[in-house]
Design a protein around this nucleic acid. Structure first.
Ligand SMILES: [Zn+2]
Ligand SMILES: [Zn+2]
Length: 735
DNA sequence: AGCACGCCGACT
DNA sequence: GTCGGCGTGCTC
């Protein structure tokens, strides 16, 4: 060890640099340990990141660390390396990145929970007692008897599993001083759960081949794309690979998009895999989250199931990473620390030296490009379990068609046919409310949001005008606010209006609408889905909510009412998202005895990407879309960073970006291109004007190099009144 | 981020 | 005369 080492500490907040301290009396704790340090005239909790031989600043200014807060580091070396890498790559302050990876209580100086498993053991008084003396309290007696057999103590959760409700009996025994809490080594605790592991179902040959490829790769870095159509049994492959890892004493990390972390998935993992399952979800209460974090970080939980933030959870024996629905945009954080959990999962696997499995039915074009380049290995599951046949997909040209309730005659006829044979119908319309526009027929007045460049949507159910961009609510005027005329008209169609139209077109047919409005009440979504599954609903309509995660085995016809709306959105990823939506919807229609049917209403049936999707499936679509991306020099053939700025005045936002651009130009190597500044697609939102400056570069290292020099100058830039800005590396949404 | 310092308008 | 507005800069 070097003498006179300097401790380099990361502090919370947007502080870009590490701060140097003298080790003081804290000894030589390992990097990853929390330390209490003097900072300005206060004290802060920081994280010791590394030691250095000398400091970058005036040594006389160095202050000593007050003390170390943890007996052992919270982050292991690779956990720390990953977060440092991520902070640098996404140009985010390291302290902030480290602290967001910690449970809330540990961001303060709160103590680390005792390690090991919560256990109960007898006190000396308890050991001296004979159970007969508790004859009047049979539960306490049973507990005491069981504890007498294991003087070293028993895990509280095993006792609960064995004896049932023990809380009140425990409380009584504790009050009498007969038992006490203790901590047990995770390895020493008999795993009561392991007996509950369910038998594994038979794998089909493709599943077996995928599993074999992954298990063969264990012990070294290897990224896989598990390209499996909906219902092909990807989860079964994950579970079998994880079981293997856990049996060998390793830990597995599984990440899913927010909507995918359902109770059913948790249950499936819990019943099929041994040991406690650590579930990390943003909706968890702080205490539950901290407990799960602890089980993961201490190594007690062999399996961690979580959403994107789980990518940073310390895992001492990590041996396998799974990212399910890897194409899902929610794996990228959209504010603050804008990391991609999928990309970081691959990076983490590389650092740890373990396989990573990216699973999906509709791979992101970036991922497919990595397969083509030979960086990822593709494993295919082309068959639906249970032999269900793939649905047919039809484009329906609705130009010059007489639409009723937004439905063309052909779609209505297909709906009648499906209903007549006892099938259910699923209709997707990605627009909530009754009508997206309210206008005056006499003077042309339109109900616009005063704070956004957007129309207010009419919601008839709640009788209000609602801006979907800022949440502003206004009452529905009876007469025109401008001319006083009575002829207000509702233009366009949302799910409410579609439901109304369907009621008229299909009298007597049971209809359910599922969107954010109809499912706001807790439990309502579950109730509606259950009704669908019991067959009490014949037509199911709703927004994209319906296309994600839920299975509808009774649905034989699925219709997308307005495909063009999704296809022609301003984002260059719109066609990719639309193709993914179509394939996901198709995956939920049809069953073994009857192939399902998907109908897409469009005014652009000649769209070349749609044509490739229909003729050659998602793979064909992806090839065509990648060719377009290459021609347009868009990702994955180039790399992007997006500087966004917003301010109460448009000029301020643009001025900031112009200054940013001026600072960028001298730093640009020839391959770095700057585009903008330009106003954002929805320029004004919630009273703030938004603009953006795009940085494009054919090579990732050159872009990284540029950003490393540019971002410090952005922070030093003279502040312009009211401007807030953020940098998004590898942006997912360009809006 | 906090938290100081510092330099100009409208208050007792 | 000061109270306080928030622009600027620093924290090892
Ligand atoms: Zn009018
Ligand atoms: Zn608005």
């Amino acid at each position: 060890m070097t003498e006179a080492r300097i401790a380099r500490v990361a502090l919370p907040g947007p502080l870009d640099e590490l701060f140097d301290y003298l080790p003081g009396v804290m000894g030589q704790p390992e990097p990853g340990t929390r330390v209490l340090v003097p900072f300005g005239r206060s004290r802060r909790v920081g994280i010791l990141v590394e030691y250095a031989a000398e400091c970058g600043c005036d040594p006389s200014r160095l202050k000593p660390v007050e003390r170390a807060l943890d007996p052992r580091p919270l982050f292991g070396p690779t956990d720390l390396t990953l977060i440092r890498w991520a902070a640098r790559y996404y140009r985010h302050p390291l302290g902030d990145a480290l602290f967001t990876a910690l449970p809330v209580r540990l961001r303060e100086s709160g103590p680390l929970l005792a390690s090991g498993v919560a256990g109960i053991r007898l006190t000396a008084a308890g050991a001296a007692l004979t159970p007969a003396e508790l004859a009047r309290a049979p539960r306490q007696q049973a507990l005491l008897a069981r504890l007498l057999e294991s003087p070293e103590g028993l895990a509280q959760r095993n006792l609960a599993d064995e004896l049932g409700g023990i809380t009140s009996a425990l409380r009584a025994l504790r009050a009498k001083g007969l038992v006490e809490s203790c901590r047990l080594e995770p390895g020493a605790v008999a795993s009561a759960d392991s007996s509950a592991v369910l038998a594994a179902p038979e794998l089909n040959p493709e599943q077996a081949a995928a599993l074999a490829a992954v298990s063969e790769a264990l012990g070294g870095f290897r990224p896989f794309l598990l390209d499996g159509i909906t219902g092909s049994g990807k989860t079964e492959v994950y579970i079998r690979a994880i079981a293997e890892v856990v049996a060998a004493g390793g830990q597995a990390l599984v990440m899913v998009p927010e909507i995918g972390l359902t109770p059913q998935l948790r249950e499936r993992f819990r019943t099929r895999l041994p040991g406690p399952l650590a579930v990390l979800h943003s909706a968890l209460a702080a205490g539950e989250r901290e407990r799960a974090w602890h089980q993961a970080a201490s190594g007690e939980a062999p399996v961690v199931l979580g959403t994107r933030s789980a990518v940073f959870v310390p895992l001492p024996r990590l041996a396998l990473i799974v990212v399910d629905e890897e194409h899902d945009p929610s794996l990228k954080q959209q504010e603050g620390f804008r990391y991609s959990a999928r990309d970081l999962a691959v990076r983490r696997a590389q650092l740890v030296g373990c396989p990573v499995v990216l699973g999906t039915a509709t791979p992101a074009l970036e991922t497919l490009h990595n397969v083509t380049a030979g960086r990822y290995h593709r494993l295919a599951l082309p068959r639906r379990a249970g032999g269900a046949r793939p649905p047919t997909i039809n484009l329906l040209d609705i130009r010059n068609q007489p639409l009723r309730a937004g439905l063309s005659p052909v779609l209505r006829e297909r709906m009648h046919a499906a209903l007549a044979t006892g099938g259910q119908v699923l209709l997707l319309l990605n627009r909530r409310g009754y009508a997206p526009v309210l206008t005056c027929h006499s003077c042309g007045w339109v109900g616009v949001c005063p704070d956004c460049d957007a129309r207010m949507t009419l919601h008839l159910g709640e009788r209000r005008l609602w801006c979907h961009h800022c949440g502003r609510i206004e009452s529905v005027p009876r007469d025109c606010p401008q001319c006083g005329g009575p002829d207000l008209r509702m233009l366009g169609r949302g799910t409410e209006r579609l439901e109304e139209g369907l009621t008229e077109l299909f009298p007597g047919v049971r209809i359910a609408r599922i969107d954010r409005d109809s499912t706001r009440r807790k439990g309502e979504l579950t109730r509606l889905l259950a009704a669908v599954h019991r067959g009490e609903v014949q037509i199911l309509l709703g927004t994209q909510m319906l296309a994600k995660g839920h299975d509808f085995p009774g649905v034989t016809l699925a219709g997308v009412i307005d495909l063009d709306h999704a296809l022609y959105a301003s984002d260059f990823r719109a066609p990719e998202r639309t193709a993914q939506l179509i394939v996901q919807v198709a995956g939920r229609a049809g069953r073994a005895e009857r192939a399902g049917e998907v109908v897409l209403q469009t005014r652009h049936p000649e769209h070349p990407l749609l044509q490739s999707l229909l003729r050659e499936g998602y793979g064909g679509f992806a090839r065509a879309a990648l060719a377009e991306r290459e021609a347009a020099q868009l990702p994955p053939f180039t790399y992007l960073a997006l500087l966004r700025a917003e301010a109460p005045e448009q000029e301020a936002a643009l001025a900031f970006l112009a200054a940013a651009r001026a600072h960028a130009e001298p730093l640009c190597s020839p391959e770095v291109e700057l585009l903008g500044p330009v106003p954002a697609p929805l320029s004004r939102r919630a009273g703030r004007h938004r603009a953006q400056l795009l940085v494009q570069c054919a090579q990732r290292p050159a872009l990284q190099h540029f950003l490393a020099h540019w971002t410090p100058t952005l922070r030093a830039l003279r502040r312009i009144k009211g401007v807030r800005w953020s940098l998004d590396v590898d942006p997912q949404e360009m809006v």
